[in-house]
Design a protein around this nucleic acid. Sequence first.
DNA 1: ACCTTACCAGAAAGCGCTTTCTGAAAGCGC
DNA 2: GCGCTTTCAGAAAGCGCTTTCTGGTAAGGT
Lengths: 355, 355
Amino acid sequence: MSEREARAHVTLDVVARRAGVSLATASRALNGTTRVRDELRERVRAAADLLGYIPNAHAQALASSSSNTVGLICHDVGDPYFAAIADGVMRAAAEQDVLVMLASTFREPAREIEYVSILRAQRARAILLIGSGFQDRTWERALGAELDPYIRAGGRVAVVSRHRSVRADAVLPENRAGATKLARALLALGHRRFAVLSGPPELTTVADRLAGFREGLAEAGITLDPGCVVEGAFTRDGGYAAARELLTRPTRPTCVFGVTDVMAVGALAAFREAGIEVPRDISLAGFDDIPLVRELTPPLTTVALPLTEMGQHAISLALREPHGQRSRVLRVGGEVVLRASTAPPPADSAAGEGT
Amino acid sequence: MSEREARAHVTLDVVARRAGVSLATASRALNGTTRVRDELRERVRAAADLLGYIPNAHAQALASSSSNTVGLICHDVGDPYFAAIADGVMRAAAEQDVLVMLASTFREPAREIEYVSILRAQRARAILLIGSGFQDRTWERALGAELDPYIRAGGRVAVVSRHRSVRADAVLPENRAGATKLARALLALGHRRFAVLSGPPELTTVADRLAGFREGLAEAGITLDPGCVVEGAFTRDGGYAAARELLTRPTRPTCVFGVTDVMAVGALAAFREAGIEVPRDISLAGFDDIPLVRELTPPLTTVALPLTEMGQHAISLALREPHGQRSRVLRVGGEVVLRASTAPPPADSAAGEGT
DNA sequence: ACCTTACCAGAAAGCGCTTTCTGAAAGCGC
DNA sequence: GCGCTTTCAGAAAGCGCTTTCTGGTAAGGT
C-alpha cells in the first residue's frame, strides 16, 4: 500500500482504441485541425471524457514543436509595482489561452539571465522582461547572448519599463517626460529647494527619471546639487533609509521626489517618525501610481502609469503576428496626478532659491 | 529576409557528434546521472557550450516522464495578500530549482478547475492552491474530480488558506483562533458594539473568521446581530462599499472588524470620507497583516499571518518526500498585532451594551 | 594465466503526441 | 461508365530526449 503505485496516464492511444479509430484520427478529432466526420469526433470526445484523458502537453509540444507558454521575468512579485503588471499579464494570458511561467529575480541581474536560459529550454513562445535593466556592459552582453539566439530561433521578446537592449517589442513608461512634468508641477507650487530619493543608479529607470526631473528643474534655472540626491534600494525600506539619510544633511528641501512610489512610501514613514508633516513641512511626490499610494495619508502625488495595461500590452505585443521588420514600442503614462502630499512650500522657507 | 527563417535548435545529437561520443553518453555527461569519464564529460560540455546547446525541456520531460514545474493557482496576483504568498513560493522555488507556472482565477471558481486541468496536462509536479475554497458542493466535487486522479497519478497538492477538500498538504492560518483572540483584544479595549465587514459568505475563510470572532464576543456575552454583519467583495472596493453600507444602518458600532486587511483598507477610506476618524470615532481592525497596512494612517490593528513563509512552506511541503500515509497540516499565524487603528471606544458611547 | 566484477560507452527502444504521406471511398462531369 | 477531384481515415515517421540493455575493456582474485 505504501508502494509508489503512480498509475500511468491515459494516453491518446487508449482513447483512440476505445473509440474505435486510429491514433491520428483521435488526435485530429480532439484538436480540430482537420475535418473529421462529426460522428467520429463525438465518439472520440466521449471516449476521452469517459477515460478522463488529459493530453500530455510535453508530448504535444515536442511533436508540434510549439508550446503555448510564455515566461514572465520580473524583479520581485511581492512588490506592488510588479504585482500590478503581473496581474495585467495574467489577464491577457487568460484571454489568449497561454500559460505563464513566472520568474522572480529578487533583483539579482545574474538570475535574470539564468531564467532566460531556463525559459529557452522550456521553449516558451515569448519571454517578457519586466522592470528596469542594468547599466552594465557585461550583463547586457550576457543577456543579449541568451536572447539573440532565442529570437533567431523564433522566440518573441517583449520588455516593460526597460530600454531595449535587443530586438524586442517594448512598453515604455514616459519616465523622462513624466519626471519633467512632475518637476514643473512642483515648481508651479512654488518649490525651489528639491531633493531626490534615487534608486540604484545602475538602473536605467532611475537614470531616466532623474534626468527628466533635472530637465524640468532646469527650465526654472534650478540645478540639483549632488548633496540633494540620496540613493537607496528600490524598495520601501530603501526609501525609508534614504529619507533618513536626507534628514541628516545640512539643508532641508521643501520638496522631495521619490523616484518610485514604493520608495516614497518609505520616505513618508521616515518623515512621520521624524515629526515632519507632509505636506505642511515638506512635500513628497512619487512615480508609478501604484494602487496603495491612494490609501496613504496624505495620498501621494505621483506620475501615473497604467500598470495593469502595461502587462496586458506586453503579452499582446509579444504574441501578435511577427513584427514585420522592426519591433514596436508603446509609450505609456507619464501624467502627473496631484494629490495631497504636495502643497506650496511653508512660508518661512521662501528664501534660499536653489543654486 | 522577411521569410520565417526560424532556424532549428541545436539538439543533443549534434552536440554528441561534435564531441565524438554517442547520444547516450552526451546525455549522461550533461546530467551527471551515471559516471562518465571526466575527459569525455569535459568534451561534451565544451561542445555544448560552443554550439549554444539548450536542452529541450519538453523532450526531457517526455522521456523521463517527470517535469520540474509546479503550478501556483491563486485568486488574484495583484492583491497584496496573494502577491506576498506568491513571493514566498518564488523564493522556495528558486532554491529548489523548480519553475512556477502561475494561474490567476480572478476569483472565478470555474477557472480554478480549468487551471488544475491545464496544470495536469503540463504534468506539473505539484499544484498549489492558494486562497479560500468555496462552500459549494458541485464546485467541490468538480475540483475533486480533477485533483483526485492527479494525486493518484503521483501529483502532489498543497493548499494554503483553504480547507482540505482533497488529500493535500496544507498551510492553514489560524483563522478561527486568530479572530477569537482579536475579539478578546477588542473587548479588552472596552468595545461592546461591533460590526463586521464580511466577505463572500461562501468562502470558508470568511466563515471561519466570522465564527471565531463570534466565539470571542460570546465569551463576553455579546452576540453579533445580523444587522451588524455587512457583506462585500473580498477587495478594497468591497470593503469600501460594505463600510458605506454599514454607515447607513441605524446603530453605529464603536468597533469594526474587516475580515481581510484589504477590505479594512477600503473601510478606512470610507470612514475618512464620511468624516469619521479612526480610532477616535470608531476602531478598525483587519486580518492578514499585509505589508501595506503598516503604512496607513493609522496603521491597522490586525491578526498577523506569515504570508511569505506560508508560500515557502506550501511548496516545500508539496515537494518533500511522499506524505507517508497522511497529508501534513501546518497551522500558522493568528497573533493579534495591536496598532493605532484601535483604541478604547469614545466616552459617549459607553451605553448600549450589545445584545 | 583464467574467470569474475566493475566500469563505461554505444545501440536502440521508447516517452505520447503531431503531421505528412498514402490510400480508400465518394462525388461529379461528360 | 471512366477518369477526375475531393474528403476523410490510417500507417508511419519523427519531435529530442532518457534509460534500459548490451558489450567491450580494465581491474581484481586465486
